[in-house]
Simulated assay, not measured.
Amino acid sequence: MVMRIATVAFEGIDARAVDVQVQISPGNVAFAVVRLPDKAVAESRERVRSALIASGLALPAKRITVNLAPADLPKVGSHYDLPIALGIMAAIGAIPSDALNGFTVLGELALDGSITPVAGVLPAAMAAVERQHGLICPEASGSEAAWASRDIDILAPQSLIQLANHFKGTQVMARPEPAIMRASGSLPDLRDIKGQESAKRTLEIAAAGAHNLLMNGPPGAGKSMLAQRLPSILPPLSPRELLEVSMIQSVAGLLANGALSNRRPFRAPHHSASMAALVGGGLNARPGEASLAHHGVLFLDELPEFQPQVLDSLRQPSKQGKFSSRGPIIVSPTRRASSSWPP
């Protein structure tokens, strides 16, 4: 019998459906994972084996085959550990075979059977809502997943044992609640600057109209100081903007303890940053600095020091309001500040 568990693969901030199929059959003792797994997925065999043993379960002395479908979609990351382990547990009768029906599952396993946080839980939860699924994710990411919808069923266990007890009815897990990250210290505020009335008025106009801004002046004139305080006069994030920003931060692994931040992003990459670091991309597309500045400020300090091809890479996205790479990373860097342009 083949056990099927739903999970996701990430393309930019999009979570595409992946079907984890687990079969235990007679034959030579083996544990094989097939269908374009990367190194982290291939290594999940040892993590799953150790986690099951730590949870009081042993792999059967049979052939275990794990198929990750569809075949043409690269599988990257350690979040396949949990669906693979749960598929094996269902196949050997450790949990009811129908317990995972209607759930999307992701999470990384530690060797002691605990479930550790992974990136991309919020986009996975959004995809689960679209598929009318519930979500099983690590406890530390439960608050992040709760933002997707009030109606989605979320299980956020600490360990495999806790999840198995929940399915058996001996322990009931409460639904996690959405959380906002507490502000750590005060942000730079434009009201702290005395004088510079003309420059402050320019910042206000740029903030009100979502305009790009070029600052020109000698070293020490206060260009960086002013740019760092631009987020303080931007309007608060709307609920939709908060969700968009948080999805990008989730894929990048920047959400601590599953709590979302209601601060507008401020990104200031070093002038030695590469094109991929600035606009994202790569074989498995990851958000770049411009994507991470979505609905916030991308500050290019020492603008002439950036490589020309890196600056040229911003030309077309700035006009279109989005980036496209292998795996759609959708952003709209509408506010960009630069300093130290030569006279």
Rank of each mutant, 00 (worst) to 15 (best):
A293C: 04
Q320E: 12
G142W: 07
R35Y: 00
M89H: 00
I233T: 02
R47P: 09
H166P: 01
P188L: 01
R263Y: 02
A148V: 10
P157R: 15
V279G: 11
A140D: 10
V33Y: 05
V76I: 12
M181Q: 13
L242I: 02
D14R: 15
P342Y: 12
I84H: 10
A145R: 06
D72N: 05
A221P: 00
V121P: 08
S159I: 00
A259E: 09
G222H: 15
S78L: 09
F31D: 10
V118M: 12
I95L: 09
P123C: 09
M126Y: 05
I53Y: 07
S261M: 02
L230I: 08
D38T: 15
Q309E: 10
G209V: 02
K194R: 14
Q320S: 09
K322S: 04
L155M: 15
L283H: 12
G120T: 11
P157Y: 14
Y80N: 12
L213H: 08
D189K: 04
A208H: 11
R335I: 15
H211C: 11
A146M: 13
R229Q: 04
S141K: 12
P188W: 02
A125D: 07
P236Y: 03
F10H: 14
L234P: 11
S318C: 06
Q309L: 08
L52C: 03
P239N: 10
G27R: 13
F323T: 08
L57I: 00
A140H: 10
G169H: 05
T202S: 15
L187G: 05
T170A: 02
A124S: 07
R263V: 10
P188M: 01
G102S: 15
L213S: 06
T334S: 06
A110H: 04
A259P: 01
D112F: 04
L59R: 01
T116D: 02
G93V: 08
S44M: 05
R45C: 10
A179P: 00
E108I: 13
G220Y: 08
I24N: 01
A179L: 07
I154F: 03
V310E: 09
L155A: 03
H79M: 14
A277W: 04
T170F: 04
D192Y: 01
T170M: 01
D14M: 13
D301N: 06
N257I: 04
A179T: 02
A207C: 04
A221H: 01
R240K: 14
D14Q: 15
D301L: 07
A164Y: 00
P304V: 13
S50I: 01
P138G: 13
E244W: 09
L226I: 13
K223N: 13
K223E: 15
M173V: 09
V48T: 08
P188G: 00
P188V: 02
D153P: 05
Q132R: 14
Q307P: 00
S339L: 09
A61E: 08
P70S: 05
A285L: 05
L122P: 04
S250A: 06
P265N: 09
A290P: 02
R240H: 11
G134L: 03
D19L: 14
P218V: 14
R240C: 09
I64A: 10
A17C: 11
M3F: 00
S332T: 10
D192G: 00
G222C: 14
L100I: 13
